[in-house]
């Protein structure tokens, strides 16, 4: 077995735009399942609707590409009916936190034993760049032409508050750390939530002065604040610099979980 076996090669080329970060996340995930020795026929990838949700179509396992926002309840059905399957959900910020917000908090509350990987590009990419619940304040999108005036969700705080056992945030720049987080999350009983900030040069960067891929990735790298460093700043009573977001393992606990493999 090699990581290539996890790809549905007859589905290539993929539909992602040039410079999209989603492929990086798929690769990190498939390297993780391969390194754990997971079996293709015991693993199910589930997704909703959006760019991120096309991922299972390129993976060689049995896969369920469902309706908008509903990946988690579909995955819950798979996992509860057959707990011996490894179930991994790919989702996006709009899919997970807008139309699927209720399912997200309840999946975390149940702490069901699945791994949820959210490709957060802070925009509705597939439908042409509308604002999402994760679009930063002030950012331009086709539905926020004068700048986003709502507050964004912090998906990791949401997952933690709702009860997920493992919560981490990285970006498509941090491939090594991301691969480690996914590897850890896949093995962790209970719900593992991994948020990955990904660049969408086509529909986010283009409208927000981050026109090329390199500048988007640099912006993510420059604004990522390690959790350890954030904790140190807080302990020293120093302010968190503006525009920074926290990356790292944000929650790691062992609450009772649902649907754990026997």
């Amino acid at each position: 077995m090699s990581v290539e076996d996890w790809y549905r090669v007859d589905r290539l080329p993929h539909i992602f735009c040039a410079g999209c970060g989603n492929g990086t996340i798929i690769n990190c995930t498939l390297e993780a399942v391969e390194s754990l020795g997971w079996k293709i026929d015991e693993t199910i990838f589930v997704s909703g609707i959006g760019c991120s949700s096309r991922a299972p179509g390129y993976i060689s396992t049995d896969s369920l590409h469902t309706t908008h926002g509903r990946a988690l309840p579909f995955a819950t059905g798979v996992k509860m009916a057959k707990p011996n399957f490894n179930v991994v959900v790919f989702t996006g910020d709009g899919d997970l936190s807008a139309i699927g917000g209720n399912h997200f908090i309840h999946a975390c509350r149940r702490n069901i034993d699945i791994t949820v990987i959210c490709m957060n590009n802070q925009i509705y990419g597939m439908t042409g760049g509308q604002g999402s619940p994760c679009t930063p304040k002030g950012a331009l999108s086709t539905t926020t032409p004068y700048g986003m005036d709502e507050n964004p969700f912090d998906l990791c705080e949401l997952a933690t508050a709702a009860g997920a056992n493992y919560v981490a945030r990285w970006t498509s720049y941090h491939v090594k750390e991301l691969n480690q987080a996914i590897t850890f999350g896949l093995q962790k009983p209970g719900l593992s939530f991994i948020e990955v900030l990904v660049q969408c040069p086509t529909n986010y960067g283009r409208r927000n002065k981050l026109r090329d891929v390199q500048s988007m990735i640099s912006a993510m790298k420059d604004h990522a604040l390690l959790k350890e460093k954030r904790d140190r700043l807080l302990a020293e009573g120093k302010p968190i610099p503006d525009g920074m977001f926290v990356v790292g393992t944000l929650t790691d606990r062992n609450r009772p979980a649902l649907g754990v493999k026997q």
Partner: peptide, 16 residues
């Protein structure tokens, strides 16, 4: 959590 999720879950169950 609601009937949308219920219907989704039984489809997931059926595919197993």
């Amino acid at each position: 959590e609601d009937e949308i999720a219920s219907m989704a879950a039984i489809i997931g169950g059926a595919w197993t």
